Every structure is written in C-alpha cells, then in structure tokens.
Simulated assay, not measured.
Amino acid sequence: MSPPPDQSNLDSGTGHSEGLFAKIEAQATEQGARDERLGTGRNLDSILRIPVLMQVVLGSATMPVSNLMKLGRGAIVPLDHRVGEPVDVVVNGRVIARGEVVVVEDDNSRFGVSLTEIVGSTAAEPNG
C-alpha cells in the first residue's frame, strides 16, 4: 500500500492540494498568454492594422540582360498573359486571388480588379 498523502499541503475544507490549484492557475495563465499571442481577443485589433503590400500582376517576361539594356522609351515588352486572362492578386509575395482588370467607375482614369477566384493554400505549401 502507498503511504497516506502529506496532510500539510491539503486545503482544510476540500481535501485538494494548494500546489495543484497553483499548477492549474499557472497553466490557465500560460494558455491565456498563448491565445493573446495568436491574435485572439484584444490583440486582434493590432493584427488587423498591420499593413501588407498588395499587387496585381498583369504578366511577366524573361529576357537576357543584353535585350533589357536595349529597351528605351516606346519599347514594347510582350508579357506571358493574354488580353482577357485573369490577373494574379499578390499579397506579400503570395498569390491570394485572381481577377479581371476593370476601370473604376468613380474615376475613369484609374484601374481596379474585380475578384473572380480566391486561391486556397495547397497541402504542399509551408505554413510559414
């Protein structure tokens, strides 16, 4: 048989150890701190204010430096996308959506993008 528990650590009214309560409280405090770091509760507002760089990519081109050096005013660089194909919406270097280029109604001198597809993360993509 095991020896009786040390009565000096027991709470007189309930029979529970004060050390056990302290351990549970410490775990709860640690979990609360972890939740704040993950953006729950009051920290969410500060995360939502973080600026990100959003770009709309019409297309790209690859060429040798020698051809790049020959470019001048009025030169046309053909891109890999065709007219009417969706453009990529990139946030901080990652494609998050695709869409169509449109003229902004309020200001006919500006372009915008109408989202047609939201790109989900793939299983092979790292989470970092």
Results as ranks from 00 to 15, higher is better:
65 V>R: 11
104 V>K: 11
87 V>T: 04
81 H>A: 12
67 N>I: 12
24 I>N: 10
50 I>C: 03
110 R>L: 11
49 R>Q: 08
19 G>Y: 06
27 Q>T: 09
90 V>Q: 05
126 P>C: 08
121 S>L: 12
70 K>P: 01
5 P>G: 12
2 S>C: 02
8 S>G: 06
23 K>Y: 11
117 E>W: 05
22 A>G: 15
44 L>D: 03
85 E>N: 11
51 P>T: 02
78 P>F: 03
42 R>V: 13
116 T>A: 00
43 N>E: 11
124 A>E: 13
27 Q>R: 14
84 G>T: 05
91 V>Y: 03
79 L>C: 09
32 G>E: 13
96 I>L: 13
23 K>H: 14
54 M>D: 00
13 G>M: 06
31 Q>V: 14
48 L>C: 13
28 A>I: 15
107 D>H: 10
12 S>E: 11
74 G>D: 12
52 V>R: 08
68 L>D: 03
52 V>P: 00
51 P>G: 04
113 V>Q: 00
62 T>E: 14
116 T>C: 02
126 P>N: 14
29 T>S: 12
99 G>L: 05
35 D>A: 15
60 S>L: 04
64 P>Y: 12
41 G>C: 02
69 M>A: 15
124 A>H: 12
71 L>G: 15
3 P>D: 05
103 V>E: 01
77 V>C: 02
88 D>R: 08
23 K>S: 15
61 A>L: 07
125 E>L: 03
89 V>P: 00
96 I>H: 06
16 H>Q: 04
99 G>K: 02
124 A>P: 05
91 V>A: 12
127 N>D: 09
3 P>F: 00
58 L>K: 05
112 G>R: 00
40 T>M: 14
66 S>V: 10
68 L>S: 08
123 A>L: 07
71 L>D: 05
22 A>F: 03
76 I>V: 15
10 L>Y: 01
11 D>P: 00
102 V>L: 01
74 G>F: 11
22 A>N: 05
72 G>P: 01
92 N>F: 04
45 D>I: 10
55 Q>W: 07
6 D>I: 04
13 G>D: 15
31 Q>W: 09
17 S>Q: 07
115 L>N: 04
59 G>K: 09
71 L>K: 11
114 S>F: 02
74 G>Y: 15
88 D>G: 00
5 P>S: 03
84 G>P: 00
74 G>W: 10
65 V>H: 13
35 D>P: 00
122 T>S: 14
81 H>Y: 09
32 G>W: 10
55 Q>S: 09
15 G>S: 12
45 D>T: 15
88 D>T: 05
122 T>Y: 09
48 L>N: 07
110 R>F: 04
50 I>N: 03
98 R>C: 00
109 S>I: 04
3 P>E: 07
55 Q>V: 07
113 V>H: 01
56 V>S: 00
13 G>N: 07
16 H>C: 10
56 V>Y: 02
44 L>S: 12
5 P>A: 03
